[in-house]
Amino acid sequence: MERRKFIQSMFTASAVAVVATPMGAFAKEEKKASKKGPNDMSFDDAVKVITEGKEVKDSDKVKLIVPEIAENGAVVPVKVNVDHPMEEKNYVKAIHVLNKGNSNARCADIMLTPANAEGYFATRVKLSKTQEVVALVELSDGSFIQSAKSVKVTIGGCG
């Protein structure tokens, strides 16, 4: 008798667990989605705002240096080197550092001038999860080039 009861209780418990888990997961997801920052923007929207609908080409000229695996997502060093002359009429106008997974896709926009002499920028960013970091570079003739690299994040940086 005892054994039968035990098995029965096992069955009911497992059934409850099966029903409960998807509900729980769903609720968690909803909670995550409702967590909104002050100026949220998706990656596609951010690119649209920056380029105003212009074409963006992938290029080897943009060297994006990020770690492959970031142990701490709160401090991820990002370095951008643009192999482009910095002359009076032909220079790197802006470097945009973007991410694909944070609630706000924009990290920093840097407007350069020929006085900089080199298209270089370095900073540290927060990444909430494993995602791609994108460097979008605007040249003075109005064209856009980009380079992307994925970063594996073991501990997220946004609380």
Partner: peptide
């Protein structure tokens, strides 16, 4: 005379660090 301007959002880390290059005149 400004030579670099930046717009920054909250995705940049605590105690931020920014680095640019400049030609000494």
């Amino acid at each position: 005379k400004p030579f670099t301007t930046m717009k920054v959002w909250e995705s940049v880390s605590t105690n931020p660090y920014f680095s640019v290059k400049y030609k000494v005149t």
